[in-house]
């Protein structure tokens, strides 16, 4: 077995320090934005409204972004844009652990109805938001292809 190192620029994206740095940068800004919104939007009768809105808006925006970039393997500025804005910013902005832990705490605190509303409500609204984002991007792309 030969132990050759592949050339630097042929390393997979997730092992390239510059690209990891872009994800960290986007994730830092996305996390800061999430925390600012969480601090400014109060819960609605035990319903974690801020995280709900963040996850729905983030799903819409990621659908919009990823459909815009297309499904082919990305390189160059498209790859960097996806990592900074998608994997980094929107990945750090939205969060699953807060959704799961809030729901588990609502269940544990006998607020089962709020927990179910929060969990199912976020899941379904997030899926619909992603579909709307994908559709809008696909529509814009179709229009661009007709009138470049």
């Amino acid at each position: 077995m030969s132990a050759r190192n592949p050339p630097k620029n042929h390393r997979p994206a997730h092992l390239r320090p510059g690209l990891i740095g872009l994800v960290i940068l986007g994730g830092t800004v996305g996390t800061a934005a999430r925390e600012l919104l969480t601090l400014s939007i109060p819960d609605l009768g035990g319903f974690p409204l801020a995280i709900f809105l963040i996850n729905v808006v983030g799903s819409f925006a990621l659908g919009l972004l990823l459909e815009r970039l297309g499904s082919a393997t990305l390189t160059g500025s498209k790859l960097r844009g996806r990592l900074l804005l998608g994997t980094g910013f929107l990945g750090g902005f939205t969060t699953y652990s807060a959704l799961a832990t809030h729901t588990a705490q609502l269940f544990g605190g006998q607020e089962v109805a709020t927990g179910i509303l929060y969990a199912i409500g976020t899941l379904v609204t997030g899926l619909v938001a992603a579909i709307v984002g994908i559709r809008i991007s696909a529509g814009l792309r179709a229009r661009d292809e007709v009138h470049p």
């Binding site: 799903s59 939205t94 699953y96 652990s97």
Partner: peptide, 8 residues
Amino acid sequence: TTFSTASV
């Protein structure tokens, strides 16, 4: 963790 990627 991330929610947006899971949705898409």
